[in-house]
Design a protein around this nucleic acid. Sequence first.
RNA 1: UGGGAUAUAGCCAAGUCGGUAAGGCAGCGGACUUUGACUCCGUCAUGCGCAGGUUCGAGUCCUGCUAUCCCAG
Length: 389
Amino acid sequence: MSKSASQHEKNTSQNKTAASSPPMTASRPPRVLVGMSGGVDSAVAAYLLKEQGYDVIGVTMQIWQDEREDEHTPESSCCSLSAVEDARRVAQTLDIPFYVMNFKDYFRETVIDYFVREYRAGRTPNPCIACNRYVKFEELMRRARLMGCEYVATGHYALIEADPATGRTLLKKSVTDRKDQTYALYQMTQEQLRHTLMPLGRYHKEDIRLIAAGLKLPVADKAESQEICFVPDNNYGRFIEEYDGTIAEKGLFKDQTGTPVGTHKGVIHYTVGQRKGLGLAMGTPVYVTDILPDRNEVRIGSQEDLMASGLFAGDLNFIPYNTLPATTRVTVKIRYNATAVPGTGALTEDGRLQVLFDAPQKAVTPGQSVVLYDGDLVVGGGVIQERIR
RNA sequence: UGGGAUAUAGCCAAGUCGGUAAGGCAGCGGACUUUGACUCCGUCAUGCGCAGGUUCGAGUCCUGCUAUCCCAG
């Protein structure tokens, strides 16, 4: 608490920027490619890096939006054409080179295809994690190298720090727990972390807005983006059906005993823990407890039926070490905006991650990621495969 | 077509000696949110099967009708 208080006392940028100058290895300052979404965060990130002396290049990735859609795109969508224009104006204001790059095919393959495939399989994907992993820190970084950039930078609220003891690069929570975005970054490799800058990790959102306002950036009071960027109207079910042209097949809601209690609209429309939109008047609130795509069945039950004592996860990545050393005490996030809860993590013989919670948790959802923390340090995580009751 | 019971919002349901329609679920709206999750807040019957009657006043009493259920046929 005292930490964040002291952060507030500092003036918005002057002291801090001076304290963290770039590593001037040669005569030329290192070049950094800043991924600019058109929002206020990445705009200020670009500004901070420029102030710190980096050779900053602004890039907006075209990942989805078609030209014809620009008129009706809500402002909250992070990658719309209007967002491109916002980013361009910011770059002009900051006097940095600005480019728009086409990532549509790559984004489609690594994010949208995955997103649709997972929902079809009865899981709940997190497209932001896939986008970070493959698009921002793999493909964008690859292209950054081609442009002679040492680093890729983003407006994520997270900290990247070298650990002199081990030589590894660590990922830590931002000083603002509320805005912390490390959950969506846990898949980053050592190589990626070494070449990534996240200058916002030491700031609070309010500071960022103040800085943006002080610079008269055109996006200073732009709304937060909220929904999945490629589903601007938030109707992801319709998006999936239009994307692959397959209408979701209706099926049965069943209770915990297997008794049919209603008809569902198709497996893709549900996520574990969901209560709203079921249309089931059971006299007491009911939640989705399991999605069984093989039987096209959605199981519902009470809050108690939602509880889990732990989970198994695959597709693992660890950051302070190559693999989880032993049974480890951690705090655990099982959903993007869940609070971290205490538990233990361990690897199974078949190489999966087993997490056991100290206290039962609600709505462990296959397809979502579990991220392990040791205090502010991101230990790693993986994709949830199944819950342990 | 003998007897009994019940008919209150989409569902369940309270409604006392007649006094001016609880609550839950669902729905809808909003807050929160980098997942249509959770959570929270707000909203939701000028009307109680239909038609009459009694009364200052009826969901509550009376009459008739209709529907459904149960028992007997």
